[in-house]
């Protein structure tokens, strides 16, 4: 059994600019698989909030219909095309809806695979699992709507039991301010372990809203996958 805790809060920078939350998170469980996604719409693009939402939905629609051992390329092509089609229906250009995408797709036995484009972070109490390449400065990233190559993505597989029974997906509004990823994630897992879904969600929301870094401005989105 798994529990999911999540929060997505609008950053103070977007509040002051009158912009909506451009991040989106989604977590779902079905009989044969589960999935968690965080997407961070690129702030400079006018419809990136819609782009991030539609990307997360396209991921879930795709993984539901694909076999778990599908090649990485087919996985990415399937939901990327689904995302483009949905944007077309909404009359939105892909370049106006650029978004990062970090997805974890798992099986009931705890095995999982991930795909990651752009910034953000996938971590566990054991450490970093996937992060953006480091040759950059803050707020510089690629995403759906820009990337055209499979090599822009990072992929991997694992089992929840090998990662302390906990995975944490974060957008860069959170990950860029972490000084110790393992300790942060372990503390998060330990705290949420004792909380009900409702209390845990409220606690996560408060953490994101009262973020301790001075001058933080980005939207903050986090999904915690917790193995019971």
């Amino acid at each position: 059994m798994r529990r999911f805790f999540s929060a997505s809060v609008i950053g103070p920078g977007h509040v002051s600019d009158g912009l909506p939350n451009q991040d989106y998170q989604l977590h779902r469980q079905a009989q044969h698989c589960w999935c968690a996604v965080v997407c961070d719409g690129m702030g400079s693009r006018p419809d990136s909030g819609i782009g991030s939402r539609e990307a997360a939905k396209a991921v879930w629609a795709s993984v539901k219909s694909l076999p778990f051992d599908v090649p990485d390329k087919v996985l990415v092509q399937t939901f990327y095309q689904g995302w483009l089609q949905q944007l077309k229906l909404l009359n939105i250009g892909a370049a106006d809806a650029v978004t990062t995408c970090l997805l974890v797709w798992g099986l009931p036995d705890g095995r999982f695979r991930y795909a990651h484009l752009g910034d953000g972070l996938l971590a566990s109490p054991r450490g970093v699992i996937s992060e953006c390449e480091d040759e950059r400065f803050s707020n510089e990233t690629t995403g759906l709507g820009i990337s055209r190559q499979l090599s822009d993505w990072r992929f991997g597989v694992g089992s929840l039991k090998d990662y302390g029974g906990c995975l944490v997906l974060m957008t860069d509004g959170i990950s860029e301010d972490l000084t110790d990823v393992s300790a942060f994630t372990a503390c998060l897992a330990g705290t949420l372990k004792t909380k009900s879904y409702r209390v845990g969600k409220r606690w996560l929301n408060r953490l994101c809203n009262d973020w301790p870094t001075p001058g933080h401005s980005d939207d903050k989105t986090i999904v915690v996958v917790h193995c019971l």
Binding site: S138, E176, D177, L178, T179, D180, V181, A183, F184, C187, L188, T191, L207, W211, P212, T213, P214, G215, H216
Partner: peptide, 13 residues
């Protein structure tokens, strides 16, 4: 230790 101990206390440079 609280979770805030693992988060940067200075604004981005």
């Amino acid at each position: 230790m609280t979770i805030g101990d693992f988060v940067a206390k200075a604004a981005k440079p």
